[in-house]
Amino acid sequence: MQIHYNPETSVLHIRLDGEIDHHSSSFMRSEIDDAIYAYMPEMLVLDFQDVSFMDSSGIGLIMGRYKIISPLGSDLIIANPSPHIGRILKLAGMERLAKIQNFSQKENQS
């Protein structure tokens, strides 16, 4: 997991990786929350570019973070989900909580 905070834009960009399931999400959760409380960002970007698998534990992970940043008045962006993750996000109706965006590949590889 790569965590990058831009103080000028107040954007916290978290690039998740590997497989997100009930087992791995508990570790990811505490790392993300530590970063949220450390930076109090105006925008949280959860980037799924390097996530190879996600089940409903990933939805729980996103919803839980939304519940933390929403009272702060901050926005949530879900970035670069694969088609598989996109289907699960849609099933969960996540577009009601967060913007789902696909950034260009080149931008992310730099």
Partner: peptide
């Protein structure tokens, strides 16, 4: 943080 979506999926 369980989403409660397992059966739906």
């Amino acid at each position: 943080d369980h989403a409660g979506l397992g059966f739906a999926i």
